[in-house]
Design a protein around this nucleic acid. Sequence first.
DNA 1: GATGAATGAGATTTCATTCAT
DNA 2: TATGAATGAAATCTCATTCAT
Lengths: 198, 198, 198, 198
Amino acid sequence: MSPLSEEQFKQIRDKRIEQILSVGLKIFARKGYIGTKLSTIASEAGISKGLLYHYYKSKDEFLETLIHNAIHELENGIKEMYQSPGTPLEKLRSMIEFKEEDQLYFLLTHQVLLSDEVPDKLKRIAKEHFLSSQLFDQMVPLFKEGQELGEFAPGDPNKIVSSFFTVLSGLMALNLNNDEEFIQPDPNVLIRMLTGRP
Amino acid sequence: MSPLSEEQFKQIRDKRIEQILSVGLKIFARKGYIGTKLSTIASEAGISKGLLYHYYKSKDEFLETLIHNAIHELENGIKEMYQSPGTPLEKLRSMIEFKEEDQLYFLLTHQVLLSDEVPDKLKRIAKEHFLSSQLFDQMVPLFKEGQELGEFAPGDPNKIVSSFFTVLSGLMALNLNNDEEFIQPDPNVLIRMLTGRP
Amino acid sequence: MSPLSEEQFKQIRDKRIEQILSVGLKIFARKGYIGTKLSTIASEAGISKGLLYHYYKSKDEFLETLIHNAIHELENGIKEMYQSPGTPLEKLRSMIEFKEEDQLYFLLTHQVLLSDEVPDKLKRIAKEHFLSSQLFDQMVPLFKEGQELGEFAPGDPNKIVSSFFTVLSGLMALNLNNDEEFIQPDPNVLIRMLTGRP
Amino acid sequence: MSPLSEEQFKQIRDKRIEQILSVGLKIFARKGYIGTKLSTIASEAGISKGLLYHYYKSKDEFLETLIHNAIHELENGIKEMYQSPGTPLEKLRSMIEFKEEDQLYFLLTHQVLLSDEVPDKLKRIAKEHFLSSQLFDQMVPLFKEGQELGEFAPGDPNKIVSSFFTVLSGLMALNLNNDEEFIQPDPNVLIRMLTGRP
DNA sequence: GATGAATGAGATTTCATTCAT
DNA sequence: TATGAATGAAATCTCATTCAT
């Protein structure tokens, strides 16, 4: 019966924000920047538009937060991958089996970095985050190690990482779009692309 | 003095339509359905919005025409590829080196089929065109042949075609987005994916 | 084989103008001022928009011509009615059996005079034509005569003419709209209204 | 400080909607479907276009609501008329003296059902509402009763109701259009039409 | 914090009108 | 005279954002 403590308020608030961001991620990743309406996010999250604007000054600021989180989570994902036991190939396999939220983060990042419909300002911010996160560069040693072990095919590791990201993004996009009329591609193609083995 | 003949009108019209469609293709393929403003197309094509509506009843009808053309052109592209000399692998290489317009057609088709921001009606139409075009099915024999010749890695040919399209689309999207800060992926990964050879 | 003479040109021209006006009348009377597109008139008349604008400077000028003709034709109709044999009641009956074109003229006039969607300028012009035509005033003596003969019910003849026009217009509008689901009203109600007899 | 309660929001909304519908009714009834600009409604109601679209998805949906209300109100009007004391003739007289809002509802209904400028979809909806409302059929018994009492002239009651509606609509339209230069018709003509008496 | 009413800028669409040939 | 290409103003509609309570 006693009023909620400050701490409890904070918890409620944090939980709600987490909920909003989760819904936002799902929608932005699927529908793209312009296709996403804040009103949709609000109603899917079960709150009012007003409250959304109470937490975030604008659509762009909201997306910026998502981008920030996305890159942060992907960094963590890569760290975990590194720390997991196994050969480089086994480590990479685990990325393909990302849980859904991480797939969405990955898609969001890829989309913001590449899609022409995102405002330049956000693309620039995303690029800075991305570059400073060294998300890309951190992958390179893994590939080198794999090449040294003979697990991976030879070639410029930078280009291979770039290709890996591109293909991974394509696969994840198709994964979301679960249309029965289209045949789902085989994730093993990605592995084959890396290993150069049937 | 004398009025324009029907033939002359047709020429003017055909030229304009070609011009508008070419601009539209470029913009739709890059910016997606919602990201594409008809005013942008009009001004890029150096005409008024009104004229666009003189030729096409709506944004959707315009995109429908583009989709139709896209699938038609891609069908032709595949036919040409089949008729070109060389092994299946050599034939497929030529698809990777599509000229820019064909790349745009490819991207447009992939995007319309898969992106959530395209109106359902158009997606349905695109799907029908795509399925009836047998764009997909026509590729399968080529892969089978390649597998028999030992050029390609084994595996369900349907899944391989699907993967091939996905990856090709990803590569083409990156190709357009010629951002110097990002390393361009290596088109050979696609070949490696197919052949299972380094 | 010899070129058409000036006279023949004039005939072609006149015939075409008559055709255009006839189509325009039909459409304006049915669809109203804003509902009528010049492009519709042109295509229904089998000519180009350009030619329509060659004959008439604007939509309003075109309608003005129609109004002018309408009132002229209605004047003639009333004259004919006067000159036809029979009692005042029998004369009025003939108005109810107007041929279709006259019904359209009647509707057009009524609509332009009363509908709010017609530009003020045109309404003013129509009103002037209408008042100077004495279309209204010419009817009054007929009603007076009918009242004297005991054929018509008593009452202010001006108000009766006004009612007569209103009801006639309503009947004609329903006449055009030949919708099977609605019961067509009985033209005899109009007569009964005038005569005060069952 | 404290947020508005659901109840308060409902009040604001209801008030606004009532206001918008009232303005809309006035304008649609006078100017017809195409003649009515949403910007006019908005500015007459003292609100922004945006707010109109906040409450109604489209011009058509807005008109649909009006039609729905119109038929509902007219049904009530007819019920009241039935329950009012007096002979059938006296009851009908009360319809002629409808208050302004009901006149507008009557005109709106008549117009939507008959005018060619209203989109077919809306006409169909209006027709369904109208037929299922039995607005028409409910009048018939009254006329029969009047005929039995000798108050009304003989004739097919269906056709008489139809005529009654037509003439009533014409009278109401003229009533709105309060143009001093035109003589207003006499509502008694309508009564005379029914009774067949001077 | 929380709501949804309200706005306004900008996108899509329509159509009377002009114009080159 | 005759065409339909082309324009631009104005209408419908969408949605990010603000605001009173």
